[in-house]
Design a protein around this nucleic acid. Sequence first.
DNA 1: GATGAATGAGCTTTCATTCAT
DNA 2: AATGAATGAAAGCTCATTCAT
Lengths: 194, 194, 194, 194
Amino acid sequence: MKRNRPKYGQIIDAAVIIIAENGYHQAQVAKIAKQAGVADGTIYLYFKNKEDILISLFQEKMGAFIKKLAKAIEQKETAAEKLFILVQNHFFTFSNDRHLAIVTQLELRQSNKQLRLKINEVLKGYLILIDEIIRYGIKRGEFASQLDIRLTRQMIFGTIDETVTSWVMNEQKYDLVSLAPAVHHLLINGCGKK
Amino acid sequence: MKRNRPKYGQIIDAAVIIIAENGYHQAQVAKIAKQAGVADGTIYLYFKNKEDILISLFQEKMGAFIKKLAKAIEQKETAAEKLFILVQNHFFTFSNDRHLAIVTQLELRQSNKQLRLKINEVLKGYLILIDEIIRYGIKRGEFASQLDIRLTRQMIFGTIDETVTSWVMNEQKYDLVSLAPAVHHLLINGCGKK
Amino acid sequence: MKRNRPKYGQIIDAAVIIIAENGYHQAQVAKIAKQAGVADGTIYLYFKNKEDILISLFQEKMGAFIKKLAKAIEQKETAAEKLFILVQNHFFTFSNDRHLAIVTQLELRQSNKQLRLKINEVLKGYLILIDEIIRYGIKRGEFASQLDIRLTRQMIFGTIDETVTSWVMNEQKYDLVSLAPAVHHLLINGCGKK
Amino acid sequence: MKRNRPKYGQIIDAAVIIIAENGYHQAQVAKIAKQAGVADGTIYLYFKNKEDILISLFQEKMGAFIKKLAKAIEQKETAAEKLFILVQNHFFTFSNDRHLAIVTQLELRQSNKQLRLKINEVLKGYLILIDEIIRYGIKRGEFASQLDIRLTRQMIFGTIDETVTSWVMNEQKYDLVSLAPAVHHLLINGCGKK
DNA sequence: GATGAATGAGCTTTCATTCAT
DNA sequence: AATGAATGAAAGCTCATTCAT
């Protein structure tokens, strides 16, 4: 299996760095190959084409994040706690990998519709986690019973995403993780019973 | 002044149509020129370069929207009403100009960091409107006094933006404006006192 | 019309020279452009792609030759005379444009099936001329009445083509035109009544 | 001797199949290796490079054919009979190996001048057979004494070759062997005394 | 002898921008 | 002011060949 061989990960990590440092449109395959310490052609032994690098990158990095997140959420008892874990983990993960933050929040969004559809496919796993928390919260009576699941999910995801994007565009110059409680509070309020 | 001559608006309107129908990366200057009914070279009598068309497009369209929005908000008494007007106008405006919705929510986000910084410059006017509502709501005692202005603004903008983007990506197949009350409710909850 | 503007012919003539001198696989677009005295991109204002240059080249050069040939053949009374004109003109034309001879006899045959099908389309006009002479000869009683048209055409074309190809592969070091009478004699014999 | 080891023939046979089914330009070494059931690198234990496979292919296949042909021709008494055997055997051989027919008539002609010169080297053996028949026919008084050997050979080879190529390009949808008598008749006529 | 992962040179085409008319 | 023909830089991908195992 290709994705278990060391060069696979090497190339993806190189892509993250090159895209973060040069921008999406200046991230030529040749640059990525050089950063990964392989020949240009080697890239194509592991990836179908350039787009495939980007999709794989997103799948690997976000997939791992979502899996870790799902486990952490499971541990918690209340919907409020679960939502807090989600916000905090999200902020923590991107704080710890600033290159990845730039790539997912800014650069990968410059890709074409085709690629973004594949990215959304991956994101679906994340959105499902949010949906589950909302339903759980309603069932437990923590959240208002008349909540529209889709809109509430859009509020939660939109707020978190906008917060991270703002932080990245401000060149990550304040501490993101410490915002988690306040953001969580806003969201809980939004979901809460009046 | 160039922006008062008829061809200026003609070219911007052509750009909106061409980008919406062909996507950002397939919106060549030649196509825009043809749609606008001018020669390729004529574009450069009105705009410095291609990026300048896109920035101007955003300035013209969003600028007009923000101005209109500011006036409508002024009319309302309470922060909750003001926020409702903001949400509803936002949804209404994009519902009525579906080309513009595609361009601002999907296509223009594929531009490079450089361009997006300029776009954010324009958006700042919109964000200030949000900030004013939040402050006004706190001052009037409608909103919780401990609200973090920036985070709250990010929640409001993030939620609205995510809602519109989802609607565009779902090919605008449901009614966006009718979501305004529910979205407003979520946001007011988020801002509200416990 | 593009094919009437001077650069159209300029590029085709440049392609003939470059292909003849460098071979089909070493005839890069950049080389052709340079030889034609235009920019690389200019090529694409006149031709859809590289293959289109080659097809157009063949159409222009062979098309003109076939047209000229048809006129010359018309002038002659007997099938034998017509056939002689065909052989002689064929040899004469390629003798006078040695670059073209190399391109059509050697280099263009290295193209892919796709291109060769288009080339055959053009050649059809030539083969029709041969067919007409054969039918005319049979009708006039010059040629044997039981001749199979297709096979006879293949003999005539095959013989002429092989003769020219041999001459080109021998680096054109003998006089091709002076072979016309002997070749004609062979063919007439082949077609003749016993 | 390498050409006596089983993998040598295996690779050549694989090459014929791959080239016939994929075309010259789509016949990558990797594909040939896979078809032959060997590793890519193994090819280079038996052949100097890719071109060497093609030359060897032609040598092996055409060499065997020419040898067989020479023997068959020897058996016959008259030049006319010998020529008939040649035409018939030629048609028969390619009828029976349609892959080989595609490769020699269409695909190998897409090779570069270099390779075709080597191919011509092999073909020389075939052309010599033709020459011998012509000389024999003249000597025996069957053929016209003033025949130009080279031109007559070009007529014979050109006619046969064109007939086979046409048959291949028509997707081999008629019976080639049954054309032998008519083709033979044309050629004999061409060679004959008036 | 056999393998197959790795190499890296090489080329067509697009398109924003210019400038002579 | 307006035109539109001409420019030319820039990059993803293929595949014959090698060589460590």
